[in-house]
Every structure is written in structure tokens, then in C-alpha cells.
Design a protein around this nucleic acid. Structure first.
Ligand SMILES: [Zn+2]
Ligand SMILES: [Zn+2]
Ligand SMILES: [Zn+2]
Ligand SMILES: [Zn+2]
Lengths: 133, 133
DNA sequence: ACGCTTGTTGAGAACCGATGTCAAAGATCT
DNA sequence: AGATCTTTGACATCGGTTCTCAACAAGCGT
């Protein structure tokens, strides 16, 4: 089993995620870190994010263009997101209704090891206002 | 507006999709066509699939590894899928409950242009049996 | 404090799905 | 058949992500 050493880089990534409320890509995060002086190699950012995701410390979702987006969510339990396509602003959602529906439907078809992907995308009020100007 | 000429290649892609009940990647489709002698260039397969997707003739979804998968579904109306991770076997799902839930939740947060991604993944009965052997 | 051991870093290469390039091929019309 | 103009396909290119491996540094025992 790994030792999981605490390094400057890993700390920097976690701290940056804690300060950001929105879903961000690995490259955006890399740029953010470079901008604030806490420079971290891109490969390291990817590795840190992957480790955090494996440990369920961050949530990962795929943007419509295929890029992976990361976020340190408030709740650790299973939940879903409503995300702004433009700015990444995120609202955490939980839908007991949907959870029940999903597992029932899948089981009825004889499927096992069921997982579900449920994400909502939209344009937030701020981005709509900015676009209208 | 485009002329949309009927070519051997385009026909071959559509026919292959009609015979396949499961979600397939562009590369898988390209290989399938080559194997049955109806060889079609990879770029052309991508273009045909994209055109079909734009015309809502095929559904597209992203596998967990990010690859795009295509399928010619029975119903044209909006719906979702329960897909086997192993073999791609697919069951079309529609959930009026979920549709209502999704739009209500997003609207309540002041988001516009709402879209949702809802896909169920599992292991089908056949693949489970095969794995247990 | 000081090495030693071993996990970690990072610049660049490699990878891979997807898209762009552009001359040759062929579908449609006259 | 001939003119027109979309489509094709081998190949180059792109962009996000992962791999490589020598240099580096955490943590530990002394
Ligand atoms: Zn859920
Ligand atoms: Zn926004
Ligand atoms: Zn299966
Ligand atoms: Zn729906």
C-alpha cells in the first residue's frame, strides 16, 4: 500500500480546490497554481487529481467536449450536479426520487453492478446577463 | 443547405448500424465494415456518424473512458439508456418522472438552456454468467 | 543533523480519439 | 459524355491525458 507523502505540490492542489467553488479542468488548475506562484508540473496536477478522485475526495465529471472537470464538493455522499456550461458554477443536487428510479429500472432488466450518470447542464443567471449585454 | 448525396460509404455505415443493436465506437464500426468487405475510410466513418447525430438519426453517448459510442435507436423521441459495460447491450429507457425532476430542479436554481445527461451502466445477465464461468 | 530508502516530481515523449487537409474520385444534372 | 461540386481517404495535426526516467525530497532510523 502507498505511503502518500505530503508534498508541497499535493498541498497546493488541495488548497486551490478548496478555494474554488466551481468545476475546473486539470489545465485550468495548473494555470491557476502557476499564476499564484505555487507552480506545479502539469503531470503532477493530473496525478494529484486522480489520487483525490480515487479517494473520493473530489468529484469528476466530463464536459461536453470530453474534458474532465474536478471539484471538491461539500458533501461526501453520493450526489449529482447542476453545472453552468460557461463558468463552471455548480449547485450540488441530490434526488432520492431519481436514485430509487435508477436502481429499480436497471434491476428490472436483469442488470448488475449498476451505476448511473446524472448531470444537469445549463447557463447560470450571471452568464445569461453577461451574454445579453 | 447541403445536398446530402447518397454514397456507398454512407449507405454502408447506416446499414451496419441498423444491424447492430449495441452501442459501438467509430473505430469498432470502421473495423466491422472493413471485415465485411465494405471498407470505408476512418475519417469518413466519423463524418457519417457526426452527420447522423446532427440529424438525430443516431444517439451518441460517452463511455467511461471518454470514447464516443453510437447507436441507431428505435425511438426518435428523447430517451435514455441502460448499457452493459462489457458488451454494449442496450435497453432504451424513458423516465417521465426524471424528466420532470430535472427541469424543475434546474429552473429552481435560476439556470437556463437546461440539458441533462442520464445514463445507466451495468453488467447484463449474459456477461455476468460468462464472467462466473 | 545526517545519510538512506523509497515515493514523488516534471520536462518532454508518447498515446489515442478525433478533426483538418487537399488532391483524386464519383454523384447528380444538363 | 461533360461540367459541376460534394465526398472520399491517406495522412498530418490537434488536444487532453498518460508514460518515462533521471533528479529530487519526505520520512525514518541512527
Ligand atoms: Zn445518484
Ligand atoms: Zn455561469
Ligand atoms: Zn453484456
Ligand atoms: Zn431525459
Amino acid at each position: 500500500m502507498a505511503a502518500a507523502r505530503m508534498t508541497r505540490q499535493r498541498t497546493a492542489v488541495v488548497e486551490a480546490l478548496d478555494e474554488l467553488a466551481d468545476f475546473r479542468s486539470a489545465q485550468q488548475l495548473h494555470e491557476t497554481l502557476r499564476a499564484r506562484g505555487e507552480s506545479v508540473g502539469l503531470a503532477t496536477v493530473y496525478r494529484a487529481l486522480q489520487a483525490l478522485a480515487d479517494a473520493s475526495e473530489v468529484d469528476v465529471l466530463r464536459a461536453e467536449d470530453g474534458e474532465s472537470l474536478y471539484r471538491r464538493c461539500a458533501r461526501r455522499e453520493h450526489h449529482h450536479h447542476l453545472v453552468c456550461r460557461q463558468c463552471g458554477r455548480t449547485v450540488e443536487i441530490d434526488g432520492p426520487t431519481v436514485e430509487a428510479w435508477a436502481s429499480k429500472v436497471a434491476a428490472a432488466q436483469g442488470f448488475d453492478d449498476i451505476e448511473h450518470t446524472i448531470e444537469l447542464w445549463g447557463t447560470c443567471a450571471d452568464c445569461r446577463a453577461a451574454a445579453a449585454r
